[in-house]
Amino acid sequence: MGAVGLPARVHVREVGPRDGFQNEPETIATADKVALVNALARTGLSRLEVTSFVRADVIPQLADAVELLGAIDVPDHVSVSVLVPNARGLDAALEVRDRFDEVNVFLSASESHNRANVNRSVAESLDGIGRVAERARAAGLRCQGTISTAFGCPYEGRVPVERALEIARALHDLGCEEVGFGDTTGMANPVQVRAFFARATAELGEQVELTAHFHNTRGQGLANVLAALDAGCRSFESSFGELGGCPQSGPTHPATGNIASEDLVSMLHEMGVETGIDLAALIGASRAARDVLGRPLGSHVLTAGPVEWR
């Protein structure tokens, strides 16, 4: 076990190449994306979300999904995932089925955010996800379902735990082997997160892998990680350099990024929790992203460096 009763090891999935890049206003050259994905794939990460099959007019930044997947050089031990918003996205993804291993489908816990994000009701989204998941599994792909605004919605306020868990059960019934709970606009707090994952673990932990996806919008991202760890969560998503945010963060408050992968890994390692990730290599990948984007990034460890005990 890690320190203070924590687990010896957790899983970390890097989502920066998809969740981070999609929020960048300036187009990133495909060659630069390829180099950054290849660097991340050699940090010890075992899971890597690299792109999304969305309409080019909706997210132009990810219009090169097929080209990117064809060009990256990822070691066999790294599981590559892509996000698919609907059946049309899955059709496009299956054209290059041999280049990835997992699909991520998504919806919001709140009706208002789901309407703003994908122009569907939650029920309509679940219906579409069922068809996508069935076809994806038939193609031999692992399925993850992500629930955005699982802890709070900028339009509706606090989301009841029962609502998020009801949707999680529905996703599992539709064929999702993993369910991610997203704090999409950084509204969660550690007390809320601990209670949430204690209940989720007790009710769903033996049926499906539970993953936490925190944003650092209000500076509580890593505190929420610790609360989730305490409650039994063993899988986390993060974005190198603290890239990302939510395009539907609400009418008045723009969202800052996901928790930074290097901040997460640094904290976990300092607490005695292993990830299998080389922190120095991860920081190197974030430095490379900073150079490509030409601006400072939000990661603390990227600025301060790792803890060095003498």
Rank of each mutant, 00 (worst) to 15 (best):
S286G: 15
D98C: 08
L165H: 10
L243Y: 06
A65V: 05
E156H: 06
V161W: 00
E162F: 05
R194T: 05
V179F: 02
V301C: 12
G157I: 11
R290P: 00
D73V: 09
H300V: 15
G205F: 05
E67G: 08
T275N: 11
R310D: 14
R97S: 13
V193E: 01
A285K: 01
V105G: 03
D76V: 14
G145Q: 03
V193W: 01
V191F: 09
V273K: 08
D76L: 12
E67W: 01
G175S: 11
V265I: 14
A116I: 04
H300I: 13
A71W: 00
E262L: 09
V58H: 06
R218T: 14
V78M: 12
S52I: 03
V50L: 11
A87L: 14
V50S: 03
N23V: 10
S121Q: 05
V208G: 10
R142V: 15
L141P: 01
F214P: 01
S238N: 06
P25Q: 03
D57G: 03
A123V: 11
T149I: 12
G5N: 06
L279V: 05
G130E: 05
S125C: 06
L62M: 15
G241M: 09
V78R: 08
V159F: 08
L222M: 13
V15S: 10
S249C: 12
E24S: 07
R234G: 15
A223F: 02
R163P: 00
N119W: 01
G152R: 03
A123E: 15
G157S: 12
L62I: 10
V54A: 13
G305N: 04
N114F: 08
A198I: 00
L126V: 13
A195I: 01
V12W: 04
N86K: 09
V84N: 04
P254F: 07
E26I: 08
